[in-house]
């Protein structure tokens, strides 16, 4: 999640700027503090946008390589460091998506195995069947999110998955709040359509299997 409270933003920004200054001087502790604080939302954004852990890894690495390098063009007076890094990550993600014309089914399929264990390992299930159903449902939802057009996927990832409010998402995407609101509205409607489309063939197949077993 990116900085959302405007009253805290200044303090956070000053703190991040101070860390950045120390990173410039080669301070590893400062770098680790910045990296560990800012990389998870960047990694998750790239992962949810591309569906590929390896691309998300590359994007995260490239974003922080840019921070280390001398030509890092962040200007504190123009916004937060987190927002700037997100902008860099977004550009890299969009470049990847343009190059690959969206996300391929192969990439989506590879998520199951390549995804870090801790991504889904946090939840404790008493009932294995419930766990399986939950995981299946979430995986289906993840695929539906990945199949959304890019501009709708972005708002779902930022507002629904990263839990940023509309104003923060608008700043990060560089568009009006109303645009975020309308895109999210459309995105959720599309998601429902896609989920229904995916479920219908399955239920038909189940019904067919039941009929076959009866015969």
């Amino acid at each position: 999640m990116f900085d959302r409270a405007s009253d805290k933003a200044m303090t956070t920004q000053e703190f991040d700027s101070d860390l950045l200054l120390r990173v410039r001087r080669g301070d590893e502790e400062a770098f680790l503090a910045l990296y560990r604080k800012l990389q998870p939302p960047i990694y998750r954004f790239a992962l949810n946008m591309t569906g590929s852990p390896s691309v998300a890894e590359d994007v995260t690495q490239d974003v922080f390589l840019a921070l280390i390098r001398e030509d890092f063009g962040y200007q504190p007076e123009r916004g937060t460091l987190a927002g700037y890094l997100f902008g860099v990550a977004r550009k890299l993600v969009l470049r990847h998506l343009e190059r690959n014309h969206g996300t391929s089914e192969q990439e989506i399929g590879s998520m199951d195995t390549a995804r870090p264990e801790r991504a889904l390992g946090g939840a404790a299930f008493a009932d294995p069947v419930a766990e399986l159903l939950e995981r299946e449902g979430i995986e289906e939802l993840r695929r539906a999110v990945l199949s959304l057009p890019r501009r709708y996927r972005e708002v779902v990832v930022l507002c629904d998955l990263e839990e940023n409010d509309y104003a923060v998402a608008a700043v990060l995407l560089g568009c009006p709040v109303g645009t975020v609101r309308s895109r999210l509205h459309r995105a959720r409607a599309l998601l429902l359509e896609k989920l229904q489309q995916r479920r219908e063939p399955k239920s038909r197949l189940k019904a067919l299997n039941i009929v076959r077993s009866v015969i």
Partner: peptide, 20 residues
């Protein structure tokens, strides 16, 4: 639920090592 499940999701440690 999806957001909660992936809340701990982060780049692998090798990225941090490479950057360091």
């Amino acid at each position: 639920r999806m957001a909660v499940l992936q809340a701990e999701c982060a780049a692998p440690d090798r990225v941090e090592q490479a950057l360091l």
